[in-house]
Amino acid sequence: MLDGRGSIRRRSGARLWLSAVWLTLFVLAALLAPWISPHDPLAQDLMLGRLPPAWVAGAEPGYWLGTDSLGRDVLSRIIHGARIALVVALIAGTATCLLGSALGMVAGFYRGWADRLISRLVDIWMAFPPVLFAILLIAVLGTGLTSVILAIVIIDWTRFCRVVRAETLNQSKMDYVHSAKVAGFTRLRTLATEILPNVLPTIIALLTLEMGIAVIVEAILSFVNLSISTDQPTWGGMIAEGRTSIHQAWWVLVFPLVALFLTVLSFAQFGDGLRERFDPVLR
């Protein structure tokens, strides 16, 4: 008999491993930045300004990805920029996930006034344009890493809440939930041991997606100069600086953009890959 499972698994395998490799590099770069980056990411040297990457004529040895207009090494700045990206992805992603999923599960499972309250709140939230909302929040909270993380959590919990609520609602109608009631489970136990395992694959896929989104939001906020103080290298900040000299030194813009793109893509692919690999129903 024909069975598509074999080929699906092989494809998801490649996806999972490729994204895992990039994410490992990303995490290692962030953790080991001071030891592995070839130069001080803040050291300026106007004599070495706008050096092209190593394989282009006119490059200086040791500056693999070139330098920006102030003579700072692009590779070192990307490696150091990974630190903030990682912190934002992990903390903001996880916090958003916990808040949104918890509210979504409560709304979808207990229904009643809790559901009405949470759903109305989500509706109101969704009516704000997110980027403006973020800028407004940063204006209130002040710039800095904590504010960026807070802003992401405050804005993005609805993404989890909506999806997790709908999924929980679906699951709550299944007979296995009635069966848990007949078995004498408390409501909380039913939610935690019967429904959660069925909503978890969705939550994990959303979580990895959200980690990617958090990196993008941080970059956007850096881009509009509302994120971290400017002397700390961030990918968004580098893209913003690179934009001004795109015609003279494309590499200042392109390399952080590529790093950002690969990281966000890998997070999403990693989530899907994990799901296909470890979900007993899909496996």
């Binding site: 007949v182 069925n198 979900d279």
Partner: peptide, 26 residues
């Protein structure tokens, strides 16, 4: 629900649709 719980183990049910009445991820 709470008062019913101690009696629950004595009253059981078998459902019509076995696929939906078994938790797919357990």
């Amino acid at each position: 629900d709470a008062a019913m719980r101690p009696l629950r183990p004595r009253i059981q049910m078998i459902f019509q649709d076995p696929l939906s009445s078994l938790n797919p991820r357990l």
